[in-house]
C-alpha cells in the first residue's frame, strides 16, 4: 500500500516537473517570437508598402502580400538627385571601407601579436571613440572641415565614417589574427619568409574571409550613417542625407520605396558576413 502511494506521488512529481518544463519552453518560444517580430515586422511592412501602388499604401485594409507594383520604386529611382546620391553613398562607403581596413588591419594585427605598454588601454580607447554621440561631434567637425577645405567632400565624410567604422575593424581583425596560430607564421619565417612575406603568404589567405566581412561591415556603417552625412555634405549628399532632406515632404509610398533601397544592401551584406560578426561578439560559431 505504502509502495503504491510512493509510486503515485512520484508520478505526480514527474508530471509537475513536466508541466514546469512545458511552461518554460512556451515562455522561451513566445519571447523569441516576440523579439524576432519586433525586428522583422517593420521590415515586412516596409517591403509590402514599397512594392504596392500608392492607393494600396494609403488605403485600408492593408494588403498582407505585396502586389509587386514596381511603379513607386521606378518613380523613386527616377526622382531627381536619387541616382547622384546613390553614387555618392557608394563612393563614400568604398572610401570608408578602404580607410578602415587599411588602418584597422595593422592595428588589429598589432593587438593580436605584440605585447606593448598600454595595450589594454589602447583597446579601451578604441571602444571609447564610439562613446561620443555623432550630434555632439558633427558641428565642431563641420567647422574644422570648412577651415581645412574638406567640407562638402566625400573624402571628408569618409574620414568621419572611417572613424566610426575603425573600432569595429580593429576589433574584428584582431580577433581574426588571434585565431590564426602564431606557429604558422613562425614556420613560414623559419622556411625563408620575412615578416611581410609570411603575412602575405600565410596569414592573409587564412584571414581573407574575415577581412572581407570586416570590410563589408565598414561599408554598411558608412552606407547607413545619416547625421554626419546630413551635416557635412550639401551638394554631394549621400542617399541617407538626401532622403532625410528631400523626402520629408514626399508622399508615404515614396518614403517607403526610399527606405527599402536604403536597408536592402545593409541587410544583404550583414546576412552574408554574420558568422564573422558573431565571432567578434563572442557568440560561438555554430
Amino acid at each position: 500500500m505504502s509502495n503504491l502511494n510512493q509510486d503515485v506521488s512520484l508520478e505526480q512529481e514527474i508530471q509537475a516537473a513536466d508541466n514546469k518544463n512545458k511552461v518554460w519552453k512556451w515562455l522561451f518560444i513566445s519571447s523569441a517570437a516576440f523579439m524576432i517580430s519586433w525586428i522583422l515586422f517593420p521590415i515586412y511592412l516596409l517591403i509590402v508598402s514599397a512594392l504596392s501602388s500608392a492607393e494600396v499604401v494609403n488605403g485600408w485594409p492593408k494588403a498582407f502580400v505585396p502586389e509587386f507594383d514596381m511603379e513607386t520604386l521606378q518613380f523613386f529611382m527616377n526622382y531627381y538627385g536619387v541616382l547622384g546620391a546613390l553614387k555618392n553613398s557608394l563612393i563614400a562607403a568604398v572610401f570608408t571601407m578602404v580607410i578602415s581596413i587599411g588602418l584597422g588591419t595593422p592595428a588589429g594585427y598589432a593587438l593580436a601579436r605584440f605585447e606593448f605598454r598600454g595595450k589594454e588601454t589602447f583597446r579601451m580607447m578604441i571602444l571609447l571613440t564610439r562613446a561620443f554621440p555623432m550630434p555632439l561631434l558633427a558641428l565642431p567637425l563641420a567647422v574644422i572641415f570648412i577651415n581645412v577645405g574638406l567640407d562638402d567632400t566625400l573624402f571628408g565624410l569618409s574620414l568621419v565614417h572611417a572613424a566610426l567604422a575603425l573600432p569595429f575593424a580593429v576589433l574584428i581583425t584582431s580577433s581574426l589574427f588571434l585565431g590564426i596560430p602564431v606557429e604558422l607564421e613562425e614556420a613560414a619565417w623559419v622556411l625563408g619568409c620575412n615578416r611581410w612575406q609570411a603575412f602575405m603568404k600565410v596569414v592573409m589567405p587564412l584571414a581573407l574571409p574575415g577581412l572581407t566581412a570586416s570590410a563589408v561591415f565598414a561599408f554598411v556603417i558608412s552606407w547607413n550613417e545619416v547625421f554626419a552625412a546630413a551635416v557635412l555634405t550639401i551638394n554631394n549628399q549621400t542617399l541617407t542625407a538626401f532622403l532625410v532632406q528631400s523626402l520629408s515632404s514626399s508622399p508615404a509610398e515614396v518614403k517607403f520605396a526610399g527606405g527599402l533601397i536604403l536597408i536592402m544592401p545593409a541587410i544583404l551584406f550583414l546576412f552574408v558576413v554574420r558568422k564573422y560578426l558573431f565571432s567578434m561578439w563572442g557568440i560561438a560559431n555554430r
Binding site: E186, A187, C193
Partner: peptide, 20 residues
C-alpha cells in the same frame, strides 16, 4: 640573423601545417 638566414628548419609541437 633573422630565422630565414640561418638555414635551419623547425618542427613545431602543433605541427603548424599551412591549412590553405
Amino acid at each position: 640573423l633573422p630565422p630565414k638566414e640561418r638555414n635551419v628548419a623547425m618542427v613545431f609541437q602543433n605541427y603548424a601545417v599551412f591549412p590553405h
